[in-house]
Structures are given as C-alpha cells and as structure tokens.
Computed example of a mutant assay.
Amino acid sequence: MEKAAGDEDAGEAALDEITSPAFVVREQGQVVAAAGYRAWPSRTAHIGVLTAPAVRGQGLARVTGSATVAHALAAGLLPQWRARPPASRRVAASLGFEELGFQLSIEII
C-alpha cells in the first residue's frame, strides 16, 4: 500500500515509525488503509494515517484514524494529528480535531 500511495504520502503518514499497534482495513486480503501513532514526549500520540489511492474517499482513513485515537486515549495519551494535505485535514476535522497552529520542521545538514 505504501508503494501505491507514493513516497510523499507514505512519508507524511510515517507508518514505519509507529509505536502503537497498526489499525488496518483489508480488502481481498490486502491492506488498503492503515493508521497508528508514535508516542512522543509529554504523553503525546502523533497519529499517522495512510489510504491506498484506489480506495480514497470511502471513509477508510476515518475508520482507521478513529481506532487509533481511541487506542491513544485509552492509553492516557493526547492524540495529535499533524495534517498538512487538505484531505488529511478534512479527516482530522471529521474526528473532532481542531487546528491550533502550525508545525515547523528544520533539517540541519
């Protein structure tokens, strides 16, 4: 699925960095949507969600994202959804997240 989604979307979701269980939706035995979180300092759960391009717009990001948020809350963590792409921002808003600011990342070479 990450290959089909492309490097940019897969990198944004960063599912290879999650420390939680992965919450997935399968169709015909293939994972078509996945989400999880990476535990960050201050008991924060940084959520990542990825949906295969062929099945986007069917609510699968909301399903996997919701399961991830529920798991984080049950673990006593504060879910954080960094949503840059507009579609990700819409999913986050549908789950009750509110935009509070922006994140700036700097790579020192």
Score class of each variant (00 low, 15 high):
S94V: 10
E12V: 10
R26D: 12
G101K: 12
A75R: 15
E27G: 03
R90H: 10
D7T: 07
G36P: 06
V63T: 11
P41G: 01
A87S: 10
A87T: 02
P53I: 04
A14V: 06
F23V: 13
L60V: 07
S66Y: 07
S42W: 14
I109R: 14
P85K: 04
H71D: 15
L50M: 10
H46C: 14
A33E: 00
T19D: 06
F97N: 03
L50P: 02
T68H: 06
A87I: 02
A45L: 10
Q28G: 09
A4S: 12
I108F: 09
P79K: 10
Q30C: 06
P79H: 09
A92M: 07
E2I: 07
Q28S: 15
P86T: 10
L104Y: 11
G11C: 08
S88L: 03
A22N: 01
L15T: 06
A5C: 14
A93E: 15
G59M: 08
G6P: 09
V31W: 03
I109V: 14
V25P: 01
L77G: 03
G36Q: 09
S105I: 15
R84W: 13
L73I: 13
Y37P: 03
V24G: 01
A39C: 09
A33H: 03
M1R: 03
H46I: 10
E98G: 12
A67N: 06
L95M: 13
H71V: 04
F23P: 06
G76V: 13
G65V: 03
T19V: 05
I47Q: 01
G11A: 09
R43V: 11
G59R: 07
V91Y: 00
T64M: 14
E8T: 09
P86A: 15
A54D: 00
R82V: 10
D16R: 12
A54N: 00
E98Y: 11
R43I: 05
V25L: 09
P53F: 04
E8D: 10
R84G: 06
Q58P: 00
G65W: 07
I106D: 01
E12G: 01
A93H: 04
A52I: 06
L73P: 02
V31G: 01
G11S: 12
V55Q: 00
V63P: 00
L100V: 15
A75V: 07
G6H: 10
Q28F: 08
M1L: 10
W40H: 12
Q28L: 10
A61R: 05
T51H: 05
